[in-house]
Design a protein around this nucleic acid. Structure first.
Lengths: 196, 196
DNA sequence: ATTTTAAGAGAATAATCATTCTCTTTCAAT
DNA sequence: ATTGAAAGAGAATGATTATTCTCTTAAAAT
């Protein structure tokens, strides 16, 4: 009778994510993916059909493995500025485990490298940004005292998404993670001041 | 006697810049460069030796053709927040002449796509960011009234550099330039408020 | 007009992969 | 032990594309 599979498609994508994240799409070869996943070309092609499809699947893995854990505290209805800070700290401490050139944010990298050429990737990028925006919006909304006017919460959250994109881009070539921490905390400090 | 050259090396790089900027490094072929520059392979290779060297040369062209004009007002010793706004407006109105996927910022794109793999490009990126930082630092410094404490001018300027990087990344996939304008003006409005 | 070098056109070359194919090996169920 | 699908190893295949080469054309100076 048939031998049972020793790994799932997700296993492949999880391991492929690490390579794509570190090197980008174009600079990652199938040979590297075979090596990094420990799975033969035959099986990769059987499960995904090709390099691009595998890359797209990595977005879901990135959400599961990186984004969801990082947003764990932020994605509660009572989250506030501390939970935004926790998101930054989580991602920076992750970056700290690598050295320059750091991987940065898989989504941010794909925004410039792949999304302009590929609709499926562009869609995933948009979805990620909306997820981030939603978390930031909740947190900033909660940080405003109820008796205050609603201000422009959505606007401030959008600003923060843009800043975040820039921060992870800088993280690629910034060797000093404490500098990244400083950038994040200064931004949040000023944000808090503007809400007071 | 010898025929004189009908174009300079800079002519080649200027035109190549447009292609690299729109498509990125990897997705630009020599065939496209030959077509876009109107210069034969022979001459491109004679002047630059290869695709990567040409790409690196495009950084200087980007400075000359795009960055320097955009920073014209900002790079005066008496520039202030209005001159920062002028930089944003200049770049956004440039973006407005294209449609999504927009080219974004040539330097920002290279930060994620090429700089991690290439030291020469990483150096150019760093240089550009320092140029931007210097202009922002001057402008923010001038915007603080003399009788105020010096605050953290450098820090605020660094924040703004990060935000700027993020903004141009977003510009790649944001169809609505007025939205980019809003993001920039809101940031500056809050910055002004924090200086008051 | 002739010479001389610049520059082009575009055909070869070569290298680099993504993808496919062939041939084994492995393992689980009988 | 045998069988049958699951994977693997890694050799072809094919496409793409950077780079080089050959041959021709163009124009400027004499």
């Amino acid at each position: 009778m048939p031998r049972t599979k020793s790994y799932t498609s997700d296993d492949i994508a999880q391991r492929a994510l690490g390579v794509f994240w570190a090197n980008g799409y174009a600079a990652t070869s199938m040979a590297e993916l075979v090596e990094a996943t420990g799975v033969s070309r035959k099986s990769i092609y059987a499960d995904y059909g090709g390099k691009l499809a595998l890359f797209v699947a990595c977005f879901d893995q990135y959400q599961n493995l990186v984004v969801t854990p990082a947003l764990r505290r932020l994605e509660h209805s009572d989250a506030g500025l501390d939970e935004i800070a926790a998101y930054f700290e989580q991602q920076i401490s992750l970056a700290e485990q690598t050295s320059t050139p750091r991987p940065g944010c898989f989504v941010g990298n794909s925004t410039t490298e792949v999304a302009p050429h590929n609709a499926a990737v562009a869609e995933k990028v948009k979805h990620h940004n909306q997820r981030l925006l939603k978390g930031f919006t909740t947190a900033i909304g909660n940080a405003i005292r109820a008796e205050e006017k609603p201000m422009h919460v959505k606007e401030l959250a959008e600003e923060l998404v843009v800043f975040t994109t820039g921060l992870w881009a800088h993280s690629r070539i910034e060797p000093n993670c404490d500098h990244l921490r400083k950038l994040a905390s200064t931004y949040l400090k000023n944000l808090a001041r503007s809400l007071a």
